[in-house]
């Protein structure tokens, strides 16, 4: 048990106040939302106790969830429980709702937030692939204003984000699922529930006239960040899905990832199964279209 008794606890009432804390080095703090990652890391001694913590829990600005035209806007403070329950998310980003439903158990889903999951910048974060296939943009803010960056660029590397020391993640903007498109989410973990992923991923696609008209696919736990598989995406568009193209798509997808071995799986299996997941997504698309 780490001792956090001496950690200063900052309780901003508004986003503006929170950003002011972050602006000044003397008050800058570790932002804390659901605590499902940070509290564990502090407890386990993986991270030393911080000198200051910024409580994001009660900021109303982070709690919005709405559709605006073709865009779905999700506040960074929205929990996994809220994501899986929301009819809006279910309609406009079903793979995200499905992903949220596979994070931890009910208790973790009630605590953990989408902003925290992305902010933790782990390649095993279950939110990223569904956001990536929805072309999500992260909106971040500091007292100097806000900026919006495609998630592909926001996820810089292992535990690295394009986020300045004085910035906070505010919300995500997603392309709502267009009509006639399908989505899917698949997670492979060491057990059926409450698992950290070995490999997981999402796709969004469309078939037209027996051919793939559009295909976006993203996988996590196979590279330092969750990634879109651009090569296989481009290769498959315009093709008819049959045994040959499925096999080739599988091989191309497998070649496009660079997984490592860890306690949950081997690099070789991850490499192979990445291709298999992409094949599964294409089969799903073929059967849906």
């Amino acid at each position: 048990m780490s001792n956090l008794d001496d950690t200063e606890f900052l309780e901003p009432a508004t986003l503006a106040e929170a950003l002011r804390f972050m602006a000044d080095e003397s008050t800058r703090a570790v932002p804390l939302a659901g605590g499902t990652d940070l509290m564990v890391q502090w407890e386990a001694g993986v991270r030393p106790p911080p000198s200051r913590v910024l409580n994001l829990k009660s900021l109303p600005e982070l709690a919005e969830l709405r559709a605006e035209g073709d865009t779905l806007i999700i506040g960074a403070g929205i929990t996994h429980a809220a994501l899986r329950r929301s009819p809006l998310v279910r309609k406009h980003a079903p793979a995200l709702a499905d992903a949220a439903a596979t994070v931890g158990g009910a208790q973790i889903q009630a605590l953990g937030t989408i902003g925290g999951s992305i902010g933790n910048a782990s390649p095993a974060g279950d939110m990223a692939p569904s956001l990536l296939v929805a072309n999500a943009r992260a909106e971040v803010a500091s007292i100097h204003g806000s900026r919006t960056i495609p998630l592909t660029q926001f996820l810089v590397g292992y535990r690295k984000l394009d986020l300045a020391a004085d910035e906070l993640i505010i919300r995500f903007h997603l392309d709502a699922l267009p009509a006639e498109y399908c989505e899917g989410w698949r997670k492979l973990g060491p057990r059926a529930a409450q698992a950290i992923s070995k490999v997981m991923g999402s796709y969004r696609g469309k078939q037209e006239g027996g051919k793939v008209a559009s295909f976006a696919v993203a996988l996590g736990s196979v590279a330092p960040t969750a990634i879109r598989l651009r090569e296989v995406e481009q290769w498959v568009v315009g093709r008819k899905l049959n045994a040959d193209t499925l096999r080739e798509a599988e091989e191309r997808a497998s070649a496009e990832v660079k997984p490592i071995a860890d306690i949950r799986s081997t690099a070789e299996y991850r490499q192979w199964v990445s291709g298999r997941l992409v094949r599964g997504f294409l089969e799903h698309l073929a059967s849906a279209g």
């Binding site: 956090l4 804390l32 605590g35 499902t36 509290m39 829990k57 429980a81």
Partner: peptide, 15 residues
């Protein structure tokens, strides 16, 4: 009214 794991919550976060 929501189930949560109380080991992961900084008590100060509870208003």
């Amino acid at each position: 009214h929501e189930p949560v794991t109380s080991c992961l919550i900084a008590a100060g976060q509870v208003p």
